[in-house]
Amino acid sequence: MTLSETGRSSDPVVTADGLGMTYRAPVRHSGPGAAFRSLLRKEHRDIEAVADVSFAVGAGEIVGFIGPNGAGKTTTMKILSGILHPTAGQARVLGFVPRRRQHEYLTQIALVRGSQPTAGPAELTVLDNLHYRRVLYDVPLSRFHANVEELTHTLDLATILGRQVRALSLGERMRAALAIALLHRPRVLFLDEPTIGLDASASAAFRRHIARYAADTGATVLLTSHYMAEVEALCPRVILIDHGRLRYDGSLPALATNLSPYKLLRVTTADSVRAVDWDAYGQLDATDSQQVTLRVPRRDVPAVTGRLLAEVPVADLTVADPPLEAMMDQFYRAGVA
Rank of each mutant, 00 (worst) to 15 (best):
K42I: 02
M77S: 04
T305F: 13
D277E: 15
A256K: 15
L183N: 06
R245C: 11
V319A: 06
R298T: 15
S289D: 13
V50K: 00
G58F: 01
V296G: 08
L284I: 02
E150Y: 00
M327D: 05
S142C: 04
P322F: 02
Y137K: 14
M328F: 15
G58P: 04
L178K: 05
A233G: 00
E43T: 09
A122R: 13
P236W: 03
L141H: 11
L222V: 15
V292P: 05
G95Y: 02
D52V: 07
R134N: 02
P140K: 04
V304K: 05
E104V: 01
K73I: 12
P117G: 04
I62M: 14
V126G: 00
E5T: 05
R307M: 00
W278M: 09
R245W: 04
P194H: 01
L259P: 01
A286I: 06
H243P: 02
T125K: 01
A200L: 14
G31T: 05
G218K: 09
A219M: 11
R295Q: 14
P186Q: 08
L130E: 03
G335A: 10
V314W: 10
R37W: 12
K78V: 10
V148E: 03
G114W: 04
R274I: 03
H29K: 15
D288C: 06
T107R: 15
Q291G: 04
L308E: 04
Y213L: 03
E232C: 05
A303N: 08
V312Y: 03
L198Q: 06
T2E: 12
D329Q: 15
S251D: 09
D277W: 04
Y281I: 03
